[in-house]
Nucleic acid binder design. Structure first.
Lengths: 221, 221
DNA sequence: CCAAAAGTGTTAGGAGTACACCCATGG
DNA sequence: CCATGGGTGTACTCCTAACACTTTTGG
């Protein structure tokens, strides 16, 4: 029997100030009833990236998200049904787009806090840990953090994303100064009452970032 | 026809002060006569890591090297023989162990400078670029650099490794001070005449490194 | 009026970078 | 004796981290 290849996509979003991951409940054996990372077999005529995007859109209805290949898991015995190699991806969804299409596949899908995930099927616990670790690392030297926010956001929300993923508090003044120095945020003429005092809204300026990105700009948090 | 899976291993070493990569000349079509990154099909009962180690030892006779999974390449059409997904690895061989077993597979294998590699088969040019980029990145925040040196080495040799891979000169005094601050080298009571004045030999102290590794120690070059 | 998040500067310490000369040896 | 890499210290700059109070609004 041949080796088969799947892609699994670890989808993150921020909900209620905490990092959450998308999981689906398995209906059939093995691991019936357990939660698993969404994924499926790679079609013979599609690239790995395309397979990941297709699975993601089938499971959640979401398109045009940030998607990045993570690692390939291929130990024999990781799937009792046979030799299955999984190319794992991770994806980020803005918090205002994280409502799920009901009934895709009839599968029960839901968001679970990364701090306390349920027991997972197969070796998916390991895949999830790996994805969280990668997300933390990338947060510090890329702009992935913005992918988790709506187009317009406050500085408090941006800081909350960093704190949720890094798992520690960041000094507000230092955070704002450094973000300001990067010069990649465009302040808008709008405010939003996220707390009591209305906060200024910003938008990520991809244009300004492109000018600097290959110069080794770091996010020093 | 099913999807097949290979592992390819991008093997690096330092020769004559420059970064080199191990390539094999293809005997059969497609791309007969071209050079390619060594690799082969994953067996059904072995893990991806084990497959990479096996391929590496079959091609070079080398064991116990630093090996790390790189990325999986799976575009349809990347191999004219059919749908083949390649899990790429990179490996580092100490310069004193880079003599190749002649005649493994009867394949012509040899070291080529990464600065001016020959034209490569398949999408192996892209895989090589990806591996070089990863090596550069990892050099700056891990101890992979030591994998390219023999057990005993001089500070000049260590600096040459960094310069070869990063492609730029490093100030000698700054380099030595920072390496010294890390406290991960054990000075030996031996010297070697690598230039004219005999230089003190050092050994990498994995023990001391382990104490610090999870504290975010960086190699600031 | 009170709770809650917004917003704002300064300082001290540490790290990075630039820079030049003498030493020991082999040929 | 000379060419070659070995070996060493200082000063300036910049980044980081620590730190507290006033403002605005909703309830």
């Amino acid at each position: 029997m041949a080796i088969r290849v799947t892609v699994d996509v670890v989808v993150f979003t921020i909900r209620d100030g905490d990092l959450h991951v998308l999981l689906v409940r398995r209906g059939a054996a093995p691991f019936a009833g357990r939660y698993a990372i969404p994924g499926g077999f790679v079609h013979e005529d599609e690239s790995l990236d395309a397979a990941a995007r297709r699975e993601l859109s089938e499971e959640t209805g979401v398109r045009d998200v940030y998607l990045e290949q993570l690692y390939s898991f291929g130990d024999p015995g990781r799937d009792p049904r046979g030799r299955i190699i999984t190319v794992a991806y991770f994806a980020l969804i803005a918090s205002d787009q994280s409502t799920l299409d009901a009934g895709s596949h009839g599968a029960e899908a839901g968001w679970f806090p990364v701090k306390k995930p349920p027991a997972l099927a197969f070796d998916h616990g390991r895949i999830l840990e790996y994805a969280v670790e990668r997300l933390r690392t990338k947060l510090e030297y890329t702009t992935v953090g913005f992918q988790l926010l709506p187009e317009k956001f406050t500085l408090g929300e941006l800081q909350a994303v960093y704190e949720a993923i890094l798992g520690r508090r960041i000094d507000k003044r230092n955070f704002r100064r450094k973000i300001g120095l990067l010069g990649i945020l465009t302040p808008l003429r709008e405010r939003r009452a996220t707390g009591r005092k209305p906060a200024l809204l910003y938008r990520f300026s991809a244009r300004r970032f492109a000018n600097l990105r290959d110069k080794g700009i770091l996010f020093p948090f």
